[in-house]
Design a binder for these strands. Structure first.
Lengths: 214, 214
DNA sequence: TAGATTGTTAATCGATTAACAATC
DNA sequence: TAGATTGTTAATCGATTAACAATC
């Protein structure tokens, strides 16, 4: 398994995008698509699409193109949407609650099993059938329930300590919403979501455009 | 202005990251830093740091390095944190409210001036001094208040129409939280935030790691 | 001055695009 | 079969890294 050629991050990041476009095609009732047609829809080259897909296998057929449903399912498998991950949310503030309510994640195999906070006013409250629990009970919960992923929505200053704590308890994936590049010495997969970075890039690009217009 | 060499998206996306690290250094009371030292902190090469910074000017000094406060301010200027943008949030569901409460954005010059929704139960409610208004009153509000940026937190199916509507009214930047690649025929800057894409990449990487471990 | 470190050019690496033989 | 379109190799392009003269 580990002998296979390494797939670049650039390709991996495009997979969910392919998955979305194929889902749209499926909804539109389109059963087959060529890399050329998909290319014009997605605004990337047909070459890139064929290269990307061929990292994982030959899903198409010469002279025909790709069967939409088949390709959709194959990319779904590659992304592991059929695997189930047990997820907890740490920090039930605005962002934590917003994510807890975002039921779409369940469709992709991310099963929310617990929410934790320190605020006594929040503890006991329910979000979509899940009770917000005290942070004190988290360690035990993680061990007993074999949690795969922790979504970190705690304040900036507490993030590194909490990350370390859950990683030591065996959590294998972290989805971090604090504006810091979380890194851990352990074998843990971390995805950093930097909303303020994204907004600042928007601001930069906006300024550039306005400058040029002047 | 438009004659200057084009700066690549790769560089632009790193700017907020530099800004964060410099902010940390400042907080730690560190007054000067070499590209080498910054490189080891950030986990990128010193070469890249010097190349990136030199896209915008020579901020350092041979034999000395960079003055942290000066560089922080310069990058802040490049990112336009001193410019003020008028922002509205469209859709006051979970994500909209979470973003409305995230007061950190104000620090970077993004001033929330309005929140809009269609839900009568939400209209009239206040979030941080801003009243949630009816979507019906949005067009007028945008024109009267010269809104720069709209944050789109509306359901998937309504996103393209709302985006088009605000773009026609002169909104120049869109921060889109719907899981679609929003594109518009107008001269509008769009930043797509694809939370579910990010989560699926985490899932993929997690699966890969678990496969190799077996 | 000597040492350190930048700014910048040149070399390398990796990712994207083009081309085309294979084949449905 | 003829036309279409893939899978894949080769060419190009752009981004990263290395090297080093300039200079504080």
């Amino acid at each position: 398994m580990s002998l296979e050629k390494k797939i670049s991050m650039a390709v991996i990041k495009r997979l969910p995008r392919y998955y979305r476009y194929l889902s749209d095609l499926l909804r539109l009732g389109i059963t087959r698509i060529s890399s050329k047609e998909l290319s014009s829809r997605m605004g990337i080259t047909a070459s890139q699409i064929r290269q990307d897909l061929n990292c994982f296998g030959g899903f198409g057929q010469q002279g025909y193109g790709y069967n939409v449903e088949y390709l959709y399912n194959e990319i779904g498998n590659i992304l592991g949407v059929n695997e189930t991950f047990k997820v907890i949310i740490i920090g039930a503030g605005n962002m934590g609650q917003a994510l807890a309510n975002y039921s779409n994640f369940e469709k992709r195999g991310f099963k929310l099993t617990g929410i934790f906070d320190v605020n006594p006013e929040l503890i006991g409250k329910r979000i979509r059938d899940i009770e917000i629990m005290s942070l004190d009970s988290m360690d035990r919960f993680i061990m007993e329930n074999r949690v795969d992923i922790a979504i970190l929505c705690v304040p900036y200053e507490h993030t590194p300590a909490i990350a370390d704590r859950v990683a030591c308890l065996g959590v294998k994936g972290l989805w971090n919403f604090s504006p810091m590049d979380l890194k851990l010495p352990y074998d843990v997969i971390i995805e950093n979501v930097h909303l303020s970075d994204s907004l600042m890039v928007l601001g930069y690009r906006l300024n550039e455009m306005l400058k040029i217009e002047k």
